[in-house]
Amino acid sequence: MRKIFLLIFIIFISIMESNAAIKISPSTIEINANTTKKDYISTAFNVSGGINETIRFKIYPVFFKYDEKGRFIELRDNGQSDSLMGKIKFYPTEFTCQKGQPQKVRLTITGLKTLQNGESRLMLFLEDVNTKEVLLSKLNGNIGGKILVKTRVGVPVYVDKGNFTKKAQLVSLNAREDNGFLNCSYKITSNGTSKVRYNGWGYITDNDNNLIKKFKVISSNLPGGQGAYLEKEQKIDLKDCILNKNQNYNLKFVLTYKDEQDKEKVLKKETSFTSNMNINQNKI
């Protein structure tokens, strides 16, 4: 009887582990320090776990940057001028969420007057701490292998202060047709003091300016700072297009972002490419 209870307990714990979930909203915190005359500013976000689980979270801050490919790089805190480490207070620091119920996490950025002009940032990580170990009895002297699964979600916190600027340039756009896909690559630079979040559309046209395909450019965050840039690639499926082999086509990117005045700025770039094969000619 005790073995049955033990088995049920182990299954229960296994189910608990296999459902670990973290949901955060909003996913990014962006604060304009110019909206207050105080030396601190507060906001909050919501955290919840899976609907059928009780999950314990811990929160901790990390300084970071995104590299030129948009990859996350964790940085050691050396008191960098654009870091919010040591200037953030949040509550609670560890808590339990039950059955998907949301928990509000309040955070306060202090020492606003000591922040640099432009952007400062950090990432608040929320991690499930409930990785209970399950030791299974081994038969025949075997040893057991096990992987515990953890989930972690970061909430980037950005603070803009003073005369911050958001300036971006679309400096290059290249396109190459390869086996029914259009490989688009572009470089976008930033020389403002705050990050830029851009969106946009891509247009494929023929030489008579007839639209062949319109697609959404996958948007991204472009870090601020001297020499900051992103090199992105996007693969476009041409199966719904009709292209002729050896014929030239045009690709145009029209990207938009909001500047420091919240005004929309437009970035445009155009290039051409040659189709290496007939695509969907039988559809004509």
Binding site: S14, E17, S18, A21, G144, L148, V153
Partner: peptide, 25 residues
């Protein structure tokens, strides 16, 4: 509706035994 980021574990086998030769069973 605000922006949402969510990640959760989603099944799969996370436990096994190791046989006498060191292989995962």
């Amino acid at each position: 509706l605000g922006t949402i980021s969510s990640v959760e574990s989603y099944g799969g086998n996370v436990s096994t035994t190791i046989d006498d030769t060191g292989s995962l069973t």
